[in-house]
Amino acid sequence: MNLPEQKAHLDEQSLEAINPDRCQLSSDSCNVTTPGLGLAEHFTSADSLSSRQSQAKTSVAAQPQSVQEGEALLIQRICAGEKELFYDLIRPYERAVYVAALSVLQNESDAEEVAQEAVLKAFANLSRFRGEAKFSTWLIQITINEARMRYRKDRAHLYESIDEKDTDPDGDYFPKDYADWREIPSECLERKELRQALLRGIASLGTKYREVFILRDVQNMSIADTAKSLNISEANVKTRLLRARLMMRDVLAPGIDGVWSLGENSWKKVRPW
């Protein structure tokens, strides 16, 4: 495929992403016990974890019907000529768009540029959005596709694609035998080092695992919306999610610099199994 053909092919992919006919989102059909709930809600109800999860900043988690109805009205008015209302429509998803782009590109400036392009593309094609999908899912889908195109374009000279890079199959993944990591030292939660360790862990994931992990676990998107945004099956999302979570655990279980704090100035080396 020569370069003009490649560009045409990529443009087709981009247009497919914003074609509402591809978004069969009539209902949230994921197989979780509580469909549509993000992890925050799951933990609160099932595992009684702390309120950290309920403070999720995300705006793309399960939305009440009224939000979607409000957005549908906004979209109607924008398409009717009240263009300035697009600011209101897009505002709740600023962060989600940026993070989605970052999940693919792993570069802040590229992610910001792609996020801007995705928002502009959403505006330009808003009349094609028929409300069969959540607006947020449609927007993230556009962003992911824009980011993937950028990724391929920037690495074209390397003769590789995302798919070629992530050649490992979604097979079983068995976690390493690290010591127990039963509790999170509370003082660690605010530590800069912890955030850096998490970022290193996320960066260490292959692209397809990182995308799923960020959309589902960081952004709290539902399994169904994650699948639609990435154009993969829900079963694939779950398989990749399991593997991503176990890999993250393996990266983080040894603790920061091999130790987890037990308290002020008290450190304990993690014991291997």
């Binding site: 933990f43 996320i202 952004q219 983080l252």
Partner: peptide, 24 residues
């Protein structure tokens, strides 16, 4: 398995508020 369960859940606890990925 308990260690793997707790560690995995800890990972989710740490990232679930979204603050790990900051917007510039």
């Amino acid at each position: 398995c308990l260690a793997i369960h707790d560690g995995t859940r800890n990972v989710l606890t740490l990232v679930a508020d979204g603050s790990v990925l900051e917007v510039p």
